[in-house]
Each structure stands twice: as C-alpha cells, then as structure tokens.
Design a protein around this nucleic acid. Structure first.
Lengths: 115, 115
DNA sequence: CAGAATCCCACGTGATACTG
DNA sequence: CAGTATCACGTGGGATTCTG
C-alpha cells in the first residue's frame, strides 16, 4: 500500500499536501489511531504526520478524539466534509488510470529528445 | 480573471504547480502566445511562466509551436491529452463551489479556538 | 502512546537584469 | 517578442532526540 516508488509525484492532480490523500484513504473505512498511520505510510515522521493531521483537522476534514485512558489513545475519523473528498479522489484515480501512461510516455520522449 | 486575493491556495485539490491550472484554462478556447499569458496571470514572471510552460510541454499536455517570423512568434495549444484535464478541473471547481465555504468556516472556527 | 522541540536542507517561487 | 541568467528567500518535508 502506498508504494513510495510509484510515480504519484508525477500526478498533475493533487489533494492537499504530500500525505493528505493517503491519510484520507486510510480513514475511509473507519477511525484510526496515530501510530496506525505509520504502518501504511512508511517513512513518515511523527512531525510531518502531526502537521498533516492538524492541517486536515483545521479544515474540518477529519476529527480528532482523545480518550483519556492509560496509555493515552487518540483516534482520527473522517468528517462528512472530509468524505466529500473521496469523490474527487476517485476521479483523480480514474484519470490516472486512463491518462498517466500517456503522460509518462510523453515525458520520456521529451527527455530523450532534449537529453 | 484569476484574482490573486481568492482563496484558491486553500483549495485541497490542485492541478500541477501553482500556475498550471490557470494556464490550461487560458488555453481551453484556443492557442495563446507567450506574452498573452502575462495579462490574465497578473504578476507571473517570465522565468516562472517559462518553467510552467516547459513542464506542461514535457508532460505532453500542451504543444509549443515556433513561427520563425520577425518579430518571433510562439504559440501554445492544448493537446488532446491536456484537454482531458479540463474534466477534473471542472470537477474540482464544482467541489469548491459546494464545499469550500464549509472548509473556510471550519478553518476560521479552528483558528478562533486555538488563537 | 502520541506527540513536541530542534535543526537542517532542497526546492518552488519570485525579483531583477540581460539577450538573440 | 520570447525568453535566459543570477540571486535570493520562505517553507514544506525530513532526521533526530526528548517528554507528559
């Protein structure tokens, strides 16, 4: 899941910052805890994860719930507003399936010509 | 057109780099010359415009045609591949119309609470 | 467990000046 | 007209270490 070697950085359509789209995907099937993101999002640091989570929370796209247990537990869930992003997210994925190969081919061709 | 004061930087859905979406919009009704972009895209520098144009050309989204006249004339047009981006672009605009107010409101609310 | 605190670097963006 | 050449800067992303 979320292979860092995939050419998603070449995607012309982006949702939020570098990790937001993946975070939203992680949440579409239910709530998740902070440390659970670090499994599928291999390599993300706590600082960056916190930053992305805060940003999404600020925009009302996810909700942060603290359970004052010991040890501490924090859960993140998609808000209804956040769920509306799943549609454009799917649209972007559909576009990618249809046109990314052509884009990548054009890019290779261009690079080969200009060296 | 393309008011720099509009909250498009808050948009979670982005196409390409900072100016790409606007450039594509500029081209949807026909070809344009280099200097013609600088009118609607107020404030873009020649260096940045060149960079964005090159990037779009590299990905096969636009085509650059040089007419060896005096003075020199260069025209940019959308390729069929580039035209496929108009659909997600419209979808993003539709999303913005429906949900950006809620996002902005959530953001304001969040900022007011945290100070 | 869920982060906060620091330090650091690359890169996207931009201002300014110059050229075939 | 359509760029190129420099220089400069903020910030998003990351590595590492520490804490309630």
């Amino acid at each position: 899941m979320f292979d860092p070697a995939c050419p998603s950085n070449a995607m012309p359509i982006k949702i939020g910052d570098k990790w937001s789209a993946a975070i939203i995907r992680c949440l579409e099937d239910g709530p998740r805890r902070f440390s659970e993101f670090q499994i599928p999002l291999r390599g993300i640091t706590t600082k960056v994860l916190t930053g992305s989570l805060r940003s999404l929370e600020r925009d009302g796209l996810i909700e942060r719930t603290v359970y004052p247990e010991v040890p501490l537990r924090v859960e993140y869930t998609l808000t209804p507003l956040g769920r509306t992003l799943l549609e454009p997210l799917d649209a972007a994925a559909a576009w990618a399936r249809q046109h990314m190969p052509a884009l990548l081919a054009a890019r290779e061709e261009y690079d080969r010509r200009t060296v």
